[in-house]
Nucleic acid binder design. Structure first.
Lengths: 341, 341
DNA sequence: CTGTTAGCGCTTTCAT
DNA sequence: ATGAAAGCGCTAACAG
């Protein structure tokens, strides 16, 4: 006999009839407890009865009710992922990797787009915390304190951001910066610029510092250029200052900006890479589509998302796994860099 | 007295202690039922006691347990959104719009990326159905029958796809096609091509049909060109056939392809738009970033996502709202179209 | 307007 | 190896 659930009685009379654990128990001639065990701890159930139960469950189309499970176990099996902007290809890549891994691990994903609003971030975290076992926070803009606060609600893994004591998936920005600088040095550039993204950005700071260190360590001059919005328009806006800086090459905070910069430079009639070489960061898909195609430091975005989820999963099931090391970058040389004249 | 929940006892001893409805009831000197009402149907509770309850709840940091709510009501308050590919900017735009609207309406969002796999689509729908009150299916690749099957599990709204009897948010592809053709006609083109996307695509079929109808209705010749992958590479691959078709202008299934086509044409030394005009569909952000910038038919992607969620919400709360009309398109004239020579 | 009561479906002691 | 029973936190009749 199939149930008439609360849902059925009160709200959704045409809801599909769902078998409960009792229906299965009755059909298999066992108690509900045994059915529960048959799925949750199969080893504690006699193989033959287990088979009988599974068969009955299948016949009835039984699916455990997740709300009931959550209520009794206190776990939901879900994970939450928060990103600052779904329109940003960087974050959607991370999301895609995370989603993929979550899927493999059997965790449904609750998504939140904070639209770059730190206060929304706090609200969402609180709201999500209730229905997830853990959280992945991408490029969070909250203060360290706020993040810490959230981390007391649920286990959490950061991506592209660090907060003392909290697990984080990070990228070897310093290594990437070194790769970019070495490349430019090999091409004979002696004075390079770093076109900066938003002042508050963690990765921007890392990249700038590493570029300038490596440049100076190698006897190059390194000129900081502005802070700009991390957008195509922001990159275009940087063109004037790049020209003023008197450099033969620049490393740009990210690809979107680098593309905007190249676009504006070309519009000015400045030859890229003949007059100025440009290196981006990220290797977003469109970097390869432009003409000239962008030389850039690839960062493994999907991998980062996947690693974050994998680590969270480990946190949730095991104990305190070692956090994975920095993800390594790779220099992709394309058409926006050339020998210095 | 705060509770020691199942979660606390069995799985997560350091979980934050959470107040239950009984704690609030005790603190406010009322019964749990009254607390429940105070939040769910405030009008059925005396204003002064309601205030007392709210105050107590705040003091205790009470948040209703969603699992328990779901279990009793049969509703989760969540909605599910399924997209074929998170790496595709078209779908992330729809997702962003959907997410935004869901947020306004107070629905947490469960996300699934099917990675273009119809069977995954079916699996996900089934899995999600359990934890959501309704679903938004974007560009679903399932068969009509399968979609219908899912729709029996939960209310659902389609985006960019139609299945008889099911609510769908669609775009006025015919109108967009007409805008493109009219534009090309005004520029003096007499023989135009339509570069087709995947054979199975619903919107591709609509667009092709409308382009050819309007072209012929206006006395233009319309040449179908191939079927290609709806990707940058696919568009590049179309270049040869476009050249062979002997047309002075083409309408392309979508922007990504159009951009690829232009890229290859330019690589061949074919002048765009001087020799061939190109019109895309979608107006994805990068369309404006390329040089020359792409002339395209804008389709309101975020709006579509938002409308889908709004409609689903109406379905969930009200009765049978009228489905919104086709979303209108807009021709964005940029640099890839010019007068026919 | 408010309290009492009875579950929602599941998991988990505790017996057997 | 299995069953009986209790209870997770909440809502919704039903009384009063």
């Amino acid at each position: 006999m199939l149930n008439r659930s609360a849902a059925r009685r009160h709200h959704d009379p045409e809801d599909v009839i769902t078998a409960t654990i009792r229906d299965v128990a009755a059909a298999a001639g066992v108690s509900p407890a045994t059915v529960s065990r048959a799925f949750g701890r199969p080893e504690k159930v006699d193989e033959s009865t287990r088979r009988r139960i599974v068969e009955a469950a299948e016949r009835l189309g039984y699916q455990p009710n997740r709300a009931a499970q959550s209520l009794t176990t206190g776990r939901t099996g879900n994970i939450g992922i928060m990103v600052p902007d779904l329109a940003n290809p960087f974050f959607t890549s991370v999301l895609k990797g995370a989603q993929h891994q979550a899927n493999r691990l059997g965790h449904p994903v609750l998504l939140a787009d904070t639209e770059e609003d730190p206060s929304a971030e706090l609200r969402f975290s609180r709201a999500l915390a209730q229905q997830v076992d853990g959280l992945v926070l991408c490029g969070s803009l909250m203060s360290d304190d706020e993040v810490l606060q959230i981390s007391r609600l649920r286990p959490l893994v950061l991506v592209n951001r660090q907060v003392p004591k909290l697990p984080a998936i990070t990228v070897d920005n310093a290594g990437g910066a070194r790769q970019a600088v070495t490349h430019l040095r090999a091409l004979g550039h002696r004075r390079i610029g770093y076109v900066a993204g938003p002042p508050g950005s963690y990765s921007n700071a890392e990249r700038y510092q590493a570029v300038s260190e490596h440049a100076e360590g190698a006897g190059l001059e390194c000129v900081p250029v502005g802070h700009f919005e991390p957008s195509f328009e922001g990159g275009r806006g940087a063109a004037d200052q790049v020209l003023l800086a008197g450099v033969s090459a620049v490393v740009v905070y990210n690809d979107v900006m680098a593309l905007g910069l190249v676009n504006q430079l070309v519009a000015y009639g400045v030859a890229v890479p003949a007059e100025i070489s440009v290196v981006g960061f990220d290797d977003i898909p469109i970097a390869a589509m432009f003409t000239p195609a962008l030389t850039t430091v690839r960062i493994p975005r999907e991998q980062a998302g996947g690693a974050a989820v994998a680590h969270l999963h480990a946190l949730l099931t095991g104990g305190r796994p070692v956090p994975p090391p920095d993800l390594t970058t790779e220099l992709v040389v394309r058409g926006t860099t050339a020998r210095s004249r």
